[in-house]
Write a protein that binds this DNA or RNA. Sequence first.
DNA 1: GAATAATATTCCGATACAGGAATATGTCAA
DNA 2: TTGACATATTCCTGTATCGGAATATTATTC
Lengths: 115, 115
Amino acid sequence: MSRAATTSDVFNAIAEPRRREIIGLLAGGQARSVNDLVEAMGLAQPAVSKHLGVLREVGVVSVQQDGQRRLYSLNASELKAVHDWASQFERFWSIHVDRIKERAERKAAEVAKKN
Amino acid sequence: MSRAATTSDVFNAIAEPRRREIIGLLAGGQARSVNDLVEAMGLAQPAVSKHLGVLREVGVVSVQQDGQRRLYSLNASELKAVHDWASQFERFWSIHVDRIKERAERKAAEVAKKN
DNA sequence: GAATAATATTCCGATACAGGAATATGTCAA
DNA sequence: TTGACATATTCCTGTATCGGAATATTATTC
């Protein structure tokens, strides 16, 4: 047979360094135009548009028309899947931190109950 | 020109569903032989070996010889990079939780200082 | 050493896909 | 409408890569 997985899922979308770069640039919270991104990365406009297309299809990014430009903004909730998946293994690299966190949360819960 | 990024990074490694499946199968903590994995997934041995090769190169998986079989085990710390990257956006989908966590950690620090 | 079992590697065909170049589409302003 | 600007799409080329089939390698046992 041929190749296996289609391109349309979050994990594939973030596999590309350039796309992670775009996500990083939008992480500020402000919407940015395509040309803005083109200048920020050292990449040609068609390439950027194509990457944005992939991110758009997956839902990681959303568009908003602003005159003749298109403002892209991050839809970070779509990255939750990645975070959740990776969190599954958190215990492997930080048992200590986990315990500290648990203690902290327990204490906070107690405090919250008091107030 | 051609393609951009080399295949040898964690994000690319986990882009493949089959490879994530392997990681999931090894998440129990026990090392498993190739044949074991072959049976667990519905995939031919060469394909599994190849995926294991990719994961090995990235360091997500490590091998241990056991007689004529090779036991693969998860090296989950290599997935920390993914987790860290995704954590960067945690605030977007859970502002509440963040605030609670911050408060909790602050409070825990105070308590720790007192003791 | 020969046979066997477990795993890795090589070769192959089909497809995915990144980036460049050229072009199309869309939006505004005069 | 025309012109200018912003963005998307198409076409192309080179490469990456998945999975299957066949084969090579390594380890064990007799």
